[in-house]
Design a protein around this nucleic acid. Structure first.
Lengths: 339, 339
DNA sequence: ATTAGCACTCGGCTTTTTAGAGTGCTAACA
DNA sequence: TGTTAGCACTCTAAAAAGCCGAGTGCTAAT
């Protein structure tokens, strides 16, 4: 059934008001505050029908209406007016980004912080570590007889470094040598490729076997499912919202959000959308019960390299969140383009 | 006034029981469960006197006794029996550490995790970035025309890396050159020294001015008060304890614990003690209200390079916490010695 | 010094009461 | 036919009242 314009208008009012106040909204309020030309009785009739259609719920016989998940969905798809960031917010974002140094990691880290700050929700980002990412350069930097730092630079400007052990009896030249050979072998290849051929390659360089193994280990580690960097900010922000006035719920929320695997699961899904994606409630049940997730993804050089977003109660200020994500996203893309 | 042995014994019972149950403990419970040779009336008399002396409080006229801060202090200083870790726990620790790779950062990170896991409290660690730490080696690794990775290896085996920008028109040789000169200048010097002389040095190398400035920036950044790495684990564990059944309190706790500056403040203090230090309640008021902090410090090569510990409610299982910190500490020291 | 006994206190729980906000329905109205 | 005033009804949230019992403090006896 198609909703009349008036029904839509009323539904929008209900959702807006409920998002703002977290209180069930009554017919009288609507008629008084938003639709002075209509009596509460008329509104009441409309509300009853909207409820019939599944967009509203009654907490109990008396006491106003609360939006259902369907209502939220309709709201974000059709009803919600797209907000713009205020000048103040925009300049705050720019201000924050200005302090920024170069590497992607810290840019993303900062982004997450800004988003959480601006929206007052828990915010998260995930940098994909894709198997397709091509290796540009591998550098073994030995800074102690038995210890070296392994640097891997990839196409997506991702740098990974990790400490590895070096056999003590290797001379610096040998290490240098190994490095060069490895570089020749790896450069231009993707993580995936390198790992696939690792057995074959390995046999060719028995002399550097040990170093080689370490490196492969590191690579495997990076590609392994839950790798990639995860950034989380404002986990505690959830407590600023009345639906989480109960410690049990907070605990549950945090246990999900603090589990890297689960979060990666959440964020991993919307690969291709540059668009903002909104998941409401247990529309998909990986999200913690009664939560919504709003995400976008960012890319460098046209390739999707991660996603970022906000997680919070279903009664979320979608308008604000979307505008913040859009605003920040634009600036973020610019920053990454520079690299 | 000196406490009789019996009073001490009773006080110990009260603290132990209260730590375990979080419930005020009554004279009857004591007489029934712990001192069957004494009647509740006698115990009652003793309790009354202990209260007189300030070790116990009455929540209200009826309903049992609760330890005061003084009681906790006495408890940890004299009364508490030192616990040993169970075999199970010990093997758990070793198991966890076995997976460990080399670098300090991840060892410490792992340590924090283990502690939090084992104690069920929020656990934290802080790696000092001291001005006295001497620079062993500086390496500029240019992996893109305008971008380089700056590595700084220090005496305490700390490695810091950071991405810096390089002027595009510098040739690789020039960068190499700059690197060498900088290395000569910096090696053997402490952060503090380098920063002090930075003005003077700078004038000598106008040609490399830009790189030089970047490096100084990075150094400054590291030395700046809130630098050093902070590790936090199990922030949510606080909610497992009944005194934090109120969201407001949790919020307050988290707001302190999530603020890097504040935590660094907390941990920064007990520099010299290898010993375990226990701070109860607002004995010192930097700690979040009604919290206790148990810390120890770790060192490498005899130098103190950080501290780690546990933060939680005053009603904390000190015995368990201390034994875990000691146990983990020993293994940690060993691991770090290997480096 | 210890203990049994008893009166007394007071928090926490359950129950009752009350007030008011909101609905649904109906009948009247434009 | 859509809108509205009016009213009975429902249900919650908050306050008030009542009850239970755990625990204490004190006293008098052992």
């Amino acid at each position: 059934m198609k909703l009349s314009d008036r029904k839509k208008q009323i539904l929008k009012i209900v959702v807006n008001d409920y998002i703002k106040t977290a209180q069930p909204v009554s017919s009288k309020q609507i008629s008084d505050k938003y639709m002075t030309d209509l009596s509460s009785a008329t509104v009441r009739a409309e509300l009853a029908q909207l409820e019939e259609l599944g967009y509203l719920t009654h907490v109990h016989t008396s006491s106003g209406r609360v939006p259902s998940k369907d209502a939220y969905k309709l709201y974000v798809d059709e009803l919600m007016s797209r907000g713009k960031l205020t000048v103040k917010e925009l300049s705050f974002i720019k201000e924050q980004f200005r302090k920024q140094t170069s590497d992607i990691e810290s840019v993303v880290k900062n982004t997450v912080k800004i988003i959480s700050e601006l929206t007052d929700y828990t915010s998260l980002a995930y940098s994909t570590m894709s198997k397709e990412d091509k290796i540009l350069n591998v550098k073994i930097f030995r800074f102690k007889p038995t210890v070296a730092l392994l640097l891997i630079v990839t196409e997506n400007t991702l740098i990974r470094d990790k400490v590895i052990r070096i056999p003590e009896d290797m001379t610096d030249e040998e290490v240098e040598n190994a490095n060069e050979i490895i570089n020749r072998m790896f450069t231009g290849k993707s993580f995936g490729e390198v790992l696939t051929y690792s057995d074959k390659i390995e046999s060719e360089f028995i002399e550097f076997r040990e170093i080689f193994e370490r490196i492969i280990e590191v690579l495997e580690d990076y590609v392994s499912s839950s790798s990639g960097s995860l950034f989380l900010e404002g986990e505690d922000k959830i407590m600023n919202h009345p639906e989480y006035s109960d410690v049990e719920k907070v605990k549950n929320f945090l246990s999900v959000v603090n589990s890297k695997e689960k979060v990666v699961d959440l964020l991993g899904e919307n690969k291709n959308n540059i668009e903002i994606s909104i998941k409401i409630g247990s529309e998909d049940d990986s999200i913690p019960k009664d939560c919504s997730l709003v995400t976008a993804s960012y890319s460098a050089g046209g390739v999707n390299i991660g996603s970022y977003g906000v997680i919070g109660p279903i009664r979320m200020d979608y308008q604000k969140v979307v505008s913040v994500l859009e605003g920040v996203g634009k600036i973020l893309e610019e920053m990454l383009k520079d690299e």
